[in-house]
Design a protein around this nucleic acid. Structure first.
Lengths: 188, 188
DNA sequence: GCACTAAAGCTATTGCTAATAGCCTACGAC
DNA sequence: GTCGTAGGCTATTAGCAATAGCTTTAGTGC
């Protein structure tokens, strides 16, 4: 029997694809194995069970999102940077709605790679806020407010909580406008 | 063998309690049956399988949350009402962190009870916004912004995404302050 | 007080899943 | 070419949801 040529990366990438395609979000090892033309136990050579697979998808998702956010803010500052960040964030979430919820899971403090990518994503945000001259408590509060508003909107949108699919663009822009305005006078 | 005296409500309430106690959020019929001193198949007499149980917990959670929100806004208007609403929302979510995510799931349009409680919760919000004289597009945008910010904060907080557990009260108050300020001049 | 019935519990069983043990063979290093 | 490792496999176990069909409780009509 010829080898399938699997690697950890291949398995996780395929699993992430499948996750986006399954309507209920219930990913099983059997599905992944089947899609790769392999038997279920074979996956254990590359991934530490279902938990390991999920963790791999999560870290990968965080890494991809962080890269998008970084890309979206280079060469920009203040309101311009915040808008770029918010739009990139939303775009990524809408493109990968099943993986998006994984990106907001708290990092396991014992998982080095997880902590690294999680901090990378939040780091972009703090860098942008530094442009407003915010520091210490002000920066923490502002970061939380910014994250809350953008994540909240995207979370509700991808979750289908906004009944009318119409005008979501305008609602998002106005939400970002409100955040930007608030940040202008955030310092106490 | 004596009867256990189960009803649909008893089963769902116990399941909701168990859900809050399980660290990973994985609720099984076996756990519920065991907790009620009954065998798993017996639950099917009161609840339509695991899916029906989950749906029951969801509708119950939405109903309880909507009641809290209603309670928190009576006799209040504008900024006062928004603050009451936001605080009640967060309090409920922190008290029932495992049930909270169920409350933002989009209602199944074929499920009458689900649609009713979902609309009741959102209705409170629109009532409060009516106090600002907002209507049509302005009201929709404002409602989405308000929901996004409050849900986003609570979602990140209960999910453990805010690393430092300290000063969350202040961060939340500042977030609500920002929302209130934005609503004052929301009309275009 | 007693037969009848509907509902509430049960056992037994099926099929799917994750996970582990242990075997077999492809394939690169030398 | 041979040898060792690693990547695939079959077989098996245990837990889960779900269904079929049985038994018994408990309320109702007479």
């Amino acid at each position: 029997m010829p080898r399938a040529g699997l690697t950890t990366e291949v398995v996780i990438e395929r699993a992430a694809q499948l996750l986006e395609q399954t309507p209920d979000g219930e990913l099983t090892l059997a599905m992944v194995a089947d899609s790769l033309g392999v038997r279920t136990p074979s996956l254990y050579k590359h991934v530490d069970g279902l938990a390991g697979l999920r963790r791999g998808i999560m870290v990968r998702a965080k890494r991809l999102l962080a890269a998008e956010l970084t890309q979206a803010t280079i060469g920009r500052a203040r309101a311009d940077a915040v808008r770029g960040l918010a739009r990139a964030y939303r775009s990524w979430a809408l493109a990968f709605p099943m993986q998006y919820p994984l990106t907001i899971l708290a990092a396991d403090s014992g998982d080095e790679a997880d902590v690294a990518v999680s901090e990378a994503a939040v780091g972009v945000l703090y860098t942008v806020l530094a442009g407003y001259g915010l520091s210490d408590d002000d920066a923490v509060d502002a970061a939380r407010f910014l994250r809350a508003s953008v994540h909240g909107f995207v979370s509700l949108e991808t979750g289908g909580a906004f009944r009318l699919p119409i005008d979501l663009e305008r609602s998002f822009e106005r939400t970002v406008d409100a955040v930007v305005t608030a940040l202008e006078t955030w310092q106490r």
